[in-house]
Design a protein around this nucleic acid. Structure first.
Lengths: 359, 359
DNA sequence: TTTTAGCACTCCATTTCTCTGAGTGCTAAA
DNA sequence: TTTAGCACTCAGAGAAATGGAGTGCTAAAA
């Protein structure tokens, strides 16, 4: 259904379709021929419009809720609109400023950035938002550090080749010395860096056989921590924000409609939602039945991807009724995505003393 | 309204009140005298019950939605029930196992634990859950570490006296050496540890005046990072989960009721919600109008606090209609809280090689 | 004095009915 | 090909009718 070309439509019909969509987006009420006739740029009578609208319905671009009502756009209609008819929405200065303001000073830990991005978008669009990251195929630990805290405890720091840094405090049942830790650090950095999860496991087994048990305990703890870090990066939880926003829109006034979608968004985990995660840059629109997931069949998803640097990609998007102001929403999303790319990319590639948020 | 004593009530009236509450909790429908009469342990006719119920209403324990309907409990009635009438709810083995299962292996970064705890509780109770931490009054940085990554970048690690460890990767526009970092580390650990936020700011200013500019740049970066960590710990964001659960309950079928509460929970920030954060252990129940916040005036909050060790406390709770199975919910909450205390306390106090999750 | 049966009464919830008006499709003229 | 005119359709709002659960009161029974 994505290959909708409006070649079989006269200019006037396209104008009518666009008018219907834009009016319907505004008012959420079926649009009648008379209303369209008064739309700017159309100097024909309502009767003419009626004929054209009947044609548009026959061709599947419009639908009629019931016999004596106006028309509403079908998913196919929206698709044509999005592909060909929709004008570029220009963000106002206020809007860009508001977005910049919201993003500023928010680059803390990566997770929090993702989360925060979702929140910003939810507030900005008044729709529920989601955000997730797409990790690169193969992440490895680039480097380990061990810091002595007290005789019986130390901090392990692991840094991945995506520049994520994690740490963990360990308590031991016996004492260790600074020099011991230093030695182990060297060992870890020569033997356990640049390896994938399974490789780490294997290497750990190999070392277990011919290593001093005391030393191995520390190695084991640290390497397993490193493995956890890799695991955590590998899975990509979906963050959601502003679920309650859904209720602000008339299509979700009835609970039967709102509830399944809300539950779906709450149980966000399944990355099963936006099939095309590695979508190209710019905004991407999935309309109603185009969605794979059953729960989204009569809602739309607008999303934009951004670059986290170091081979990681991220995706933010919103979910709403098929009746959405696609132009405005996608413009805003794209702007936020661009902002995030800049912020995060800047931090990942070593420029001037910038901070990179990875706690 | 919290000082409700049932001294002025006969045993039978208490039984009736209890019956009304428990039936109402089950069915969400006003309870009539006939239904109460059939309740176990009451061998009187419905007429007698009617008289007693009229008395109970006069005394404010029951309410009548309209003249010819049954009775529902008033907040005062619930209060008496919770204080005196409610039996202990025994968790079944399945329930405890389910909770243990859910908590197991979930102790990662502190934030994530909080978040996860909320999710677990939301799933467990079918109500929206919230979770937050109460930091101790004064947290300071106990120690700094600086790790050289490449010539132009280094990692700063800060550890607080609550055993939280954070780190940050910095990129510089010039080179630094291992020995330089080492020197700075010593300087930081002597001059900038054990200080509160303002003290750090002041000390920073003081040092700025008579320090080498190049060195000061590094000090500034690191100390400001430390300050961010303290700030982050000081504010206590409220995590929420399962907001959509609200819609499963009949009292929130009408959007006018559901929406304000959902928005309130979404904008979770105001710790303004549960006034008594430092609540004693065990579960704590706030019924309807007892709530300070306007949005909660006709909902109830059940919460339990847990111990994070190292002077930090946490709070988890659920929000639901005043018609809640307080016995069951509070038992479950208390159990989860106890579990969390164990897990977290264990990690914070230095026992045998346990891991403490703070990334 | 307390409990019970009986009965008239109240009032909400639900269903049924009617009415209205926006919007359509069709036909015939321009 | 476009337009005016007209009969027709149908959802939605309101009014009226119906049913029934539950009450309060009174008078008898325990």
């Amino acid at each position: 259904m994505s290959e909708v070309s409006g070649l079989d439509l006269s200019e006037r019909k396209k104008k009518i379709l666009r008018a219907v969509i834009e009016m319907y987006v505004q008012n959420a009420e079926p649009v009648g021929s008379k209303a369209v006739a008064q739309w700017a740029g159309l100097d024909v009578s309502s009767a003419t419009i009626r004929n054209d609208m009947a044609d548009l319905e026959e061709q599947g671009y419009l639908e009629q809720p019931h016999t004596s009502a106006g028309r509403i756009p079908s998913p196919k209609g929206y698709r044509l609109y999005v592909n060909e008819l929709m004008g570029d929405y220009k963000l106002s200065i206020q809007e860009t400023e508001r977005i910049n303001e919201a993003l500023k000073g928010k680059m803390q830990a990566l997770d929090q950035v993702i989360d925060e991005a979702g929140r910003v978008v939810a507030k900005l669009t008044q729709y529920p938002a989601f955000a997730l990251t797409a990790p690169p195929e193969r992440v490895t630990i680039r480097r380990f550090d061990l810091l002595l805290v007290e005789e019986r405890s130390f901090i392990a720091v692991a840094m991945t080749d995506t520049n994520t840094v994690r740490n963990n405090l360990f308590h031991l049942d016996r004492e260790v010395s600074q020099s011991q830790l230093q030695m182990l650090g060297t060992l870890l950095n020569t033997g356990f860096t640049g390896l994938s999860l399974d490789e780490l496991e294997k290497e750990l087994e190999r070392v277990a056989r011919h290593a001093d048990p005391d030393a191995f305990q520390l190695i084991d703890l640290t390497v397993r921590f490193g493995m956890e870090v890799l695991e955590e990066l590998a899975k990509k939880p979906v963050h959601t924000a502003g679920i309650a926003n859904l209720l602000d829109h008339p299509e979700y006034q009835s609970l039967e409609r709102a509830q399944p979608l809300m539950s779906f968004l709450s149980d966000a985990d399944p990355a099963a939602l936006p099939a095309k995660l590695t979508a190209e840059d710019g905004a991407n629109i999935v309309i109603g039945p185009e969605n794979v997931s059953e729960a989204l069949k009569d809602s739309s998803v607008v999303m934009a991807s951004y670059d986290l640097g170091a081979g990681m990609k991220g995706l933010i998007g919103v979910v709403g009724p098929t009746r959405m102001d696609y132009a405005k929403i996608s413009a805003r999303l794209a702007y936020v995505a661009k902002g995030l790319s800049q912020i995060m990319g800047q931090a990942a590639l070593p420029p001037e003393h910038t901070k990179e948020g990875t706690t």
